[in-house]
Amino acid sequence: MRTLKDVPVGERVTVTAVRGSGAVRRRIMDMGITRGTRIYVRNCAPLGDPIELVVRGYSLTIRRSDAAMVAVEGTRLTTHT
C-alpha cells in the first residue's frame, strides 16, 4: 500500500488511514492528518528528509520514517503544479 513517505514533492494525496501506535501517531492525528484529509506535499529539506506538507491550510513538517505510518491514495484528478 502506498504511504506518504513515497509521495513525490508537488503531488496531492488523500489519507486513507494512520497506522502504527503511540505518541507519534497520536501527534500526527492531532496535527490534523486523519482519514480523508487531503495533503499537498510541498517541499523537502535539502538533505531529502523531512518533508513539508500542506494540511488543513497550514504547513507541517514530518520525517519520512513517520510519514510511512500514513497510508494514502493519489488524487490525480486535481493535478496541481
Binding site: 507519534v24 501527534r27 496535527m31 523531512p50 504547513s59 507541517l60 513538517t61
Partner: peptide, 11 residues
C-alpha cells in the same frame, strides 16, 4: 522520552 518531529512551520 519521545520527541516527535511532527512540527508546524509557522507563517
Amino acid at each position: 522520552e519521545i520527541s516527535p518531529f511532527v512540527m508546524e512551520l509557522p507563517e
